[in-house]
Design a protein around this nucleic acid. Structure first.
Lengths: 198, 198
DNA sequence: ATGTTATTTAGAACCAGGTACTAATATGTA
DNA sequence: TACATATTAGTACCTGGTTCTAAATAACAT
């Protein structure tokens, strides 16, 4: 068996079972452990422990990425159909554990929540958005999102809301949201709106 | 600080960051490494490597047991730098209580997480996104997000990822993500990590 | 065959992050 | 004071490697 063939097989075996040790590989491929290790080097395959670590980190980040908590940002100022401000502090839960940089969807969630809350209607849902993460946000930083309604189609139409999020003076995020609004009664149980928005 | 208090703190610290070594724990709890180890014994907390192994096995089992029926809120298929699938079920926490419609940022979060997870680099961050909420998603519905990498600029560049989210056959969300990627070496312990993922 | 290069194997030193075990030293507490 | 509990110290050992040097083997052309 040629070197290339063997390395292909190596990729296959480790692909099929990433938890295999070099010693087990020597049995399957019938070469010395040094050869296995040289092959791993050449193929850029990390050692078993590193493979497990990466899988663990990946899945750990994954778990934390499904936001479990409801409220994203405290709305400190709200003028319905006009403007609003929300504050959101980046905590451990909101960042990648590797580097302490905030996951984008938390920054988005703050802006989205604000864009929806600002609309004075029974139902307000985001229809589409065009967003840009201007700079990374880090653990401990306080994001201040400022929203402005740009246009309001009559009842049951769409609204356009711009949101700019700052850390201090610095712009970190900007988004242009199209928000559906309708006083449609299909779901409303007649209560006054706004109470359950954040 | 009493033994019980310390052990409570130990549980907390390891719970908050399972990747912590005993040595780091001595710094945080201000006791000797032997005490840390005795505490771990008593509490039945395995060593760091075992913890990582268990996490890795857990996620690996989930990935390879592609049930498509029962799994909730997780990545069920992942081909780094190519494509991925994630499933997320909308529960009470994720909807407006008034009408049972999912808040947009949860749907976005699923897509964003997937778009970032799919990128095979040390650091991957969303730079910008263009998204559309095609139809409302309701309480109890299962969102299946499918991501495809459309382009990959060389190391340290940007990647474009398209994500389409379905409930059953119906498209509910679509997004075009620009994801920053960099193999910044500050954290990398060398080696590419593509070969060992299925 | 001879020299040349590539490939494979061997072996020793070292590392992280532990376990297992023994023993000494606090710190209480009855 | 004596005894028990808690804490610290230290050593030997383990796994699954890395790094390095060096030798043996194979492959190939001249």
């Amino acid at each position: 068996m040629s070197k290339k063939e063997r390395q292909q097989q190596l990729l296959q075996v480790i692909g099929g079972n990433p938890f295999v040790t070099d010693r087990e590989l020597t049995r399957q491929l019938k070469v010395s452990i040094q050869t296995i290790r040289l092959d791993r080097m050449e193929l850029g395959i990390p050692e078993l422990r590193e493979r497990m670590k990466q899988m663990a980190e990946h899945s750990y980040d994954q778990v934390r990425s499904l936001p479990a908590d409801e409220v994203v940002g405290d709305i400190v100022d709200l003028q319905l159909d006009k403007s609003g401000i929300s504050i959101f502090e980046i905590r451990e839960d909101h960042v990648f554990s590797r580097n302490g940089i905030a996951r984008g969807h938390y920054v988005f969630a703050q802006a989205n929540s604000l864009a929806v809350a600002i609309i004075n209607d029974e139902i307000a849902l985001t229809a589409s958005a065009d967003i840009r993460f201007v700079r990374m946000v880090r653990l401990g930083e306080k994001c201040i999102a400022k929203a402005q309604v740009r246009s309001l189609a009559g009842r049951g139409g769409k609204a356009e809301v711009d949101v700019f999020t700052y850390v201090g003076e610095e712009l970190v995020f900007q988004g242009h949201f199209i928000v559906y609004r309708s006083a449609v009664e299909e779901y409303s149980e007649g209560g006054n709106r706004s109470a359950d928005r954040h």
